[in-house]
Design a protein around this nucleic acid. Structure first.
Lengths: 128, 128
DNA sequence: GTATAATATCATTGGTTGATGATATGATGA
DNA sequence: TCATCATATCATCAACCAATGATATTATAC
């Protein structure tokens, strides 16, 4: 028989994926694929508010997905590991084939697509 | 100058990653890496409740991360695409290097590790 | 038909979390 | 020094979502 996966490892890995699972954080990671950027650059490219971006950057930093280098009064952020970019690419590639399903999945939504939620059609005669 | 990333694509991709970002869903995906399993098998291997697993399976199905095949009164689930497994592997590989940071990141927690939350400690020393 | 196993659906709800706004810190230049 | 730019921190709160428990559906066996 198989072993259960180590619960702690699963929790940590889920947490890692959640780093990629928020539109704000993901847009930060995506713009950083091109190379290091200051916070101001990130704000411009993503359209996030300063405080919001800074909060998410702290999160990504703590999680080790990005790294920061201070330079005068600027802070340059970059992806901390090549595998972060690889994960983004794999995600894009996969999405290109499953996008419709993702769009239609209504169990959870990204914050900015919540208004797109659609009611699930109940199946024949299920009622209570 | 760079272009902003397409907002809709970012939302969808974040949503895709969130499929991996919950411990219950992730544990389902992980046990399915070994091969197809019935729901009952999944319940045994993951320890999830029937209703909880079924809800998450519906989600993963809708999102196109897993696929189902009916066989008598059983339903066999399997990963729908090799890239799902590749994403899991990449995540594992990345986690092995950033686990401590993920563990310490307190902006969000996985449901089952919430009691582990601890105060933020400022970090330094970025790598690349 | 009845009983039961396998799976799916759905409403409820408690805990979570992202965005905001205000404020704080740090760095540069005048 | 003061002013301003660049970034970080933090409390608040509305919105969300995962787990539960109950029920429904479908399939097989008797």
């Amino acid at each position: 028989m198989y072993l259960h996966a180590d619960p702690k490892a699963v929790d940590l890995q889920a947490k890692l994926f959640r780093g990629f699972g928020d539109p704000s954080r993901l847009s930060i990671l995506m713009v950083l694929r091109q190379g290091p950027l200051t916070v101001t650059d990130i704000l411009e490219k993503t359209g996030l508010s300063q405080s919001n971006a800074s909060n998410h950057l702290a999160c990504l930093r703590d999680c080790g997905l990005v790294a920061a280098e201070h330079e005068g009064r600027y802070v340059n952020y970059h992806l901390s590991d090549d595998r972060v970019g690889e994960l983004l690419e794999l995600g894009e590639s996969l999405l290109s084939d499953v996008a419709r399903g993702v769009y239609e999945c209504t169990r959870y939504n990204t914050p900015s697509s919540r208004h797109l939620s659609q009611a699930r059609v109940p199946r024949s005669g299920a009622r209570r």
